[in-house]
Every structure is written in structure tokens, then in C-alpha cells.
């Protein structure tokens, strides 16, 4: 005699079998909910950012408020997003003078711990530098540096000059200030370029140096910083307000290393 229990089991199995069959008819697709693309990326081209307010309370006495920038969308990103892929470079530290790429593996980078893989490279051309700069002692020969040199330097970079491995994850900062790295700006600590003028101490002079950036999305751009003082004065002194970054960049959105962009 077949037991009661066995019948229950058989029935149960039959019903389960039916429902499985029924389910497998559905594709069981799981929908990914798209938050919706509200951001707009720029086209390949040249973009100028003027008087971007970094930290208007900036003095040399402390770290300025950080300024996170998304080059592909040409906009500032709030600091709360520092550990995300929403920005490419940040203006950080004293006078916003440390330009870090968004790289989550880089010690000391504000993006540390996040997903960023951006890199940068400061282009140096000593022959070009000699026009305005003492290449042995690493300081400008005379100030102001002619503005035309920024255009020349920017236009001279027509392609990414190095492989990705040669690009770095540390910051581009003040030229040879407490280190031996070429930087984007010269910090005249003692005011030695203008002896006897106390208004000329602790001034940061931008240099016509191009910084190559590989964005978090993998596109290449060239950036040149023109000033960190309000209204881009040609010959700043301590009366000028720091914390207002003026810079120019050209970005190549086709994925290539071509930076000959008009």
C-alpha cells in the first residue's frame, strides 16, 4: 500500500514542477534602473575658466578650500564627491596650488580610496623655458612673464608626449618648492624677485607650463593655469586676492592623444 506521506510528496512535487515550468517561460530579466543622464559632456575643444572661486579666504596660513573640477563636463563638483568618478582634477592645499589628478590609489590625493584612475604630466621644455626662466636656479628671470608665452606653450603641445605609465598620480604644484619637481607656478617665498618690496613676498606667479591630464573616463586634455588671483592680474602682489583660479584647457573626446585642438 502506498503511504499517505508519499502521495503528499508526489503531489507536492507535481505542483512544484508545474510552477517551475510556468516560471521558466518568463525570461527572468532583471532591470537595471538608470538614474537618468542629467549631465552633459563637452565636445572636443578649448574651454576657458575665469575667476573660478576656490577659496576666497585663502591665505598662506592654511589649506584653502578644495576645488574639484570635472573637465569633461566643464564644471565644479562638490567636495563631498571626492571619492567618486565625478571629477578629474582638484585645486588643493595652500593657495589651491596642488593640482592632484583623481586617482584613488594615490597616497595624499584627495581622491584616495575612491575609484578614480586619472593621471597628470607637467610638460617641460627647457629651451622654451629659457625665454622667461633661469633653468639652473629655477626661478623666473623677470616678471611679469609675457602673456603671449601662455598661448605659445599651450599651442605647442599638439599631442600627449608620454605614455600613461610616465604620467604621475602625485600633484603638480609650486615649482621646485621644497622639492625638485617642475611645477605650474612659482612661489616667491622671500620676495627675492622684488627685493625691498614687502608686498611682493609670498606671491605665486603662474608659469606658462602645460599639464597633460588623463581624465577619469580616459580622455586626454591639456591644461594651463593662468593665475590664482582675482581678475588675473599680470603682476600680482599681496594686495591681490588668491583663491580665484583662471585656467584654460583643451580636451580631446575622440579617445586619441591628439591635442592639436583649435
Amino acid at each position: 500500500m502506498i503511504s499517505h506521506l508519499s502521495w503528499r510528496t508526489v503531489t507536492a512535487m507535481l505542483f512544484i514542477a508545474c510552477s517551475i515550468v510556468a516560471c521558466s517561460k518568463n525570461d527572468n530579466k532583471n532591470e537595471i534602473i538608470d538614474p537618468g543622464e542629467t549631465s552633459t559632456t563637452v565636445k572636443t575643444g578649448i574651454y576657458k575658466v575665469v575667476n573660478l572661486v576656490a577659496d576666497t579666504n585663502a591665505t598662506s596660513a592654511g589649506n584653502a578650500v578644495e576645488l574639484y573640477y570635472n573637465l569633461e563636463e566643464n564644471k565644479v563638483v562638490p567636495a563631498s564627491l571626492k571619492q567618486t568618478n565625478k571629477w578629474d582634477i582638484v585645486f588643493y592645499g595652500i593657495y589651491n596650488s596642488s593640482v592632484y589628478p583623481n586617482n584613488g590609489a594615490a597616497v595624499g590625493s584627495p581622491g584616495y580610496g575612491g575609484p578614480g584612475t586619472a593621471r597628470i604630466y607637467v610638460v617641460t621644455d627647457r629651451q622654451f623655458d629659457a625665454q622667461y626662466y633661469d633653468v639652473t636656479n629655477f626661478k623666473p628671470i623677470s616678471l611679469p612673464i609675457p602673456r603671449e608665452l601662455w598661448n605659445t606653450a599651450f599651442n605647442a603641445v599638439k599631442t600627449v608626449p608620454v605614455t600613461d605609465e610616465k604620467m604621475v598620480v602625485r600633484d603638480a604644484g609650486l615649482d621646485h618648492f621644497q622639492n625638485n619637481f617642475d611645477g605650474w607656478g612659482y612661489y616667491d617665498f622671500y620676495g627675492s624677485l622684488f627685493p625691498g618690496d614687502p608686498k611682493k613676498t609670498h606671491v605665486v606667479y603662474a608659469l606658462p607650463r602645460v599639464i597633460i591630464v588623463k581624465t577619469v573616463k580616459g580622455h586626454y586634455a591639456k591644461v594651463i593655469i593662468e593665475n590664482i588671483y582675482k581678475d588675473n592680474p599680470e603682476n600680482p602682489n599681496r594686495d591681490n586676492k588668491p583663491g580665484y583660479v583662471t585656467f584654460r584647457y583643451a580636451i580631446q573626446m575622440d579617445g586619441s592623444k591628439n591635442l592639436d585642438i583649435q
Partner: peptide, 10 residues
């Protein structure tokens, strides 16, 4: 900060 990506039922 955390950036979550989610999948839900069809």
C-alpha cells in the same frame, strides 16, 4: 561617500 548601483525585479 558611497555610490550604489542597484538591480531590481523586472
Amino acid at each position: 561617500i558611497l555610490e550604489p548601483e542597484l538591480k531590481v525585479s523586472d
